[in-house]
Design a protein around this nucleic acid. Structure first.
Lengths: 187, 187
DNA sequence: GGAATCCTTTACCATTTGGTAAGTGACCAC
DNA sequence: GTGGTCACTTACCAAATGGTAAAGGATTCC
């Protein structure tokens, strides 16, 4: 509910009703609404990091690893769009929440950046700005699952067929961005 | 404020304080909070559509027009990130808001889809799914300006230099996606 | 059986929130 | 100058919201 309707848009009474308990039951298990939010954000960030690290551990650094991570990230986004929604929600919260979430995600981001960077150094990947690659991929993966309005605007719905298509689009973007065989995209 | 903190996260008192008036002044000019929201959404959608149509009118259909529209969209997103924020906020609102905003945006989306489609038919563009092109571009443009947390995670900030880089990334994506000279990305 | 702990509930409460009603001053027509 | 409209304010209000306090019920331990 935090992800779908926003933290401010979700009252403890709404939440409790959804769970079939009273608001006080929630406040018994969690210090406050903010305390609940902190734990939810922590779980979400941890799950995201775990998924990415697990995928990264499957292959050695290189194109196969990039594919593996992208697939895992996309699958997670489709399977758990609430995680993406939460991630987006963070930017509207207090700076404290931003920094605490960022602290969890930063290592995996830095790992990805350095992996891309060293891949470019060794010639496996075409040289470009790893930050742009990462940012663009993030936007592609999250934008598609977190914006149902955009999907319906182009006349699509997030079914299995669409998911496969969208995943291909993400992977294609990574391939054309990283494959040294392609020309540089700048004109 | 609706875009940054969300509609639910913005009280009329917050808004009034920001404007230096009282809440009742707002309610004098607008029927209710929802009435205000409707007008704000209408203005935002109209501005978005106007910008895109204006850009589309500069060139004839083809690669130049695609570039023109993409540049205009990106410039608008950078200059008015609140428009992007509002667009994202729509999906958490009532279905009535969704449909009314969609009604304004739908024509321009359909125009874009058919322009891409006919360009593919005539061989100007490489054949692929226009919906994916549009959706991906939308994600790229909006994701980058609407997610400051992601930007800081990769160690960037949205200054002029970064904006130019990001715009190039968007344009490159469109070029490699539409240019018939490139191989198809599917592997 | 009784005590204690755990979980949940019913009662409340202060504050915030969207909204109404009734004024008040400025400006304008005549 | 006087009546009327416009823009805005003060004064309220009912409902919702986050949170506290206290009171059951289970379950477990002895």
């Amino acid at each position: 509910m935090f992800a779908e309707r926003g933290v401010a848009g979700t009252s403890l009474d709404d939440l409790a009703a959804q769970l079939g308990v009273t608001k006080q039951t929630i406040l018994y298990h969690f210090k406050s609404k903010n305390g609940l939010l902190v734990e939810v954000l922590g779980l979400a960030a941890a799950e995201l990091v775990a998924t990415l690290e697990e995928a990264a551990a499957v292959s050695q650094p290189g194109r196969a690893q990039v594919d593996e991570i992208a697939r895992a990230a996309f699958a997670l986004a489709v399977r758990r769009p609430d995680l993406v929604g939460l991630l987006r929600e963070v930017s509207r919260l207090d700076q404290a929440h931003v920094t605490s979430v960022l602290a969890v995600l930063q290592p995996v981001v830095d790992d990805a950046l350095s992996a891309l960077s060293s891949g470019m150094d060794s010639g496996i990947f075409r040289r470009s700005d790893p930050r742009l690659i990462l940012l663009s991929t993030y936007s592609l993966v999250t934008g598609v699952v977190a914006d149902p309005v955009a999907l319906t605007a182009v006349g699509m719905q997030l079914d299995v067929r669409a998911a496969v298509q969208l995943r291909s689009a993400v992977l294609d973007f990574l391939h054309t961005s990283l494959d040294p065989l392609h020309e540089t995209g700048t004109h």
